[in-house]
Nucleic acid binder design. Structure first.
Length: 271
DNA sequence: GAATACCTGAGC
DNA sequence: GCTCAGGTATTC
C-alpha cells in the first residue's frame, strides 16, 4: 500500500529514532525478503551505525557506517504490505519476517504479502538497482517532468504510475491527482495542453504534500512507525468512492480498469 | 499494453 | 469457491 507519503513518514521516523544507533542484530524469520542473501544484508549492516536514510519515490536506502569507516547500503521497498514498527507493543506474529536490534531497541519488519524487499546496493543516492527509477515526484521541476511525459501516448493514469517517469505516485494518489487536476484518467499526456499538463503536475505534488502532512493514507494495513494508521483517508475524493456522489458536483463517481489497475474518477469534473 | 508471477487475507 | 487488493518485474 505504501506510496510516497507513507514511505516519507517511515523515512522521517527512521531518521529521528534510529540514525546514530548501531544495528546490533538481525533475526531473519523469512529469508525471501533479503537480497541477494541474508548474509549479504547482515554483512552490510550489522555491527555498523545507521548513518543515513535516503528516499526516492517509494524506495528507501539505509546507509550503515562501521567504526573502520566501511559503508554498506541497503535499499528497502515496502511494496504492497510492508510495515516497519519501532519498539512495537505487539509481539512478533507470523507476518513478522525480520527483527532488527538497535542496541536493545527492536525494529520489526512485517509484511503480510511478502512482496517487500531489502536489497544490498552500491550507493545511497544513485544505486545501480535504481537506474530505472525516475526523479522523486516531490522534487522534479515542471520543465523536467513535462519533458518526460509530453509525448506519451499511454493514458494519464498509467503514466503517473510509471515510476520511470517520476517516482512515488501509486494507485491512490494517481486517482486523486487526476481528480484535482480535472483530467480524465484515459486521456493521454500527448493529447493534453501544456497548461493542463502543468495542472496535473501541480495536483500530483499538492496531493502528495498534503498526504505527507497528514501522515499518509491507511486502507488495509498501513501503520506508521509507532503502529498508528495515517489519517489522510477522509480527504480522498474519488479513490474507492465509486457509486457515491462526487463531493464537488454530485455526479456518481465511476470505476474503470486502466492498465490492470482499478481507477476512480468523476465523469463530470474530469471530462 | 496485457498477462502473469510473486503472496496472503478479506469479502462475497 | 471465487475475486480483489495500495507494487513491480518479467514475458509474450
Amino acid at each position: 500500500m505504501p506510496e510516497l507519503p507513507e514511505v516519507e513518514s517511515v523515512a522521517r521516523a527512521l531518521r529521528s529514532s534510529l540514525t546514530g544507533r548501531r544495528a546490533t542484530g538481525l533475526v531473519v524469520r523469512w529469508a525471501g525478503i533479503l537480497e541477494p542473501t541474508p548474509r549479504a544484508v547482515r554483512r552490510a549492516s550489522v555491527g555498523r551505525v545507521l548513518s543515513g536514510v535516503h528516499r526516492r519515490g517509494k524506495y528507501l536506502v539505509l546507509t550503515f557506517t562501521g567504526d573502520d569507516g566501511a559503508v554498506g547500503h541497503v535499499m528497502l521497498h515496502l511494496r504492497m504490505s510492508g510495515q516497519l514498527l519501532f519498539e512495537p507493543d505487539d509481539a512478533p506474529d507470523k507476518h513478522t519476517h525480520l527483527i532488527w536490534d538497535f542496541e536493545g531497541r527492536p525494529l520489526h519488519y512485517r509484511d503480510v504479502r511478502k512482496f517487500g524487499r531489502w536489497t544490498v546496493v552500491d550507493d545511497a543516492v544513485n544505486p545501480t538497482a535504481m537506474a530505472h527509477v525516475g526523479p522523486d515526484m516531490l522534487e522534479v521541476r515542471f520543465a523536467e517532468w513535462n519533458k518526460r511525459v509530453a509525448h506519451r501516448k499511454a493514458p494519464w493514469k498509467s503514466v503517473l504510475l510509471d515510476q520511470g517517469v517520476a517516482s512515488g505516485i501509486g494507485n491512490i494518489y494517481a486517482d486523486e491527482a487526476l481528480f484535482r487536476a480535472g483530467v480524465h484518467p484515459l486521456k493521454t499526456p500527448e493529447g493534453t495542453s501544456p497548461e493542463k499538463r502543468r495542472a496535473v503536475w501541480n495536483a500530483a505534488k499538492g496531493v502528495l504534500r498534503l498526504a505527507v502532512k497528514h501522515g499518509g493514507t491507511t486502507f488495509l494495513d498501513f501503520k506508521d512507525f509507532h503502529g498508528k494508521p495515517g489519517n489522510f483517508r477522509r480527504k480522498l475524493r474519488v479513490f474507492q468512492r465509486d457509486g457515491e456522489a462526487c463531493g464537488r458536483c454530485g455526479v456518481v463517481i465511476q470505476r474503470v480498469v486502466v492498465g490492470g489497475r482499478s481507477t476512480h474518477y468523476c465523469p463530470a469534473c474530469q471530462p
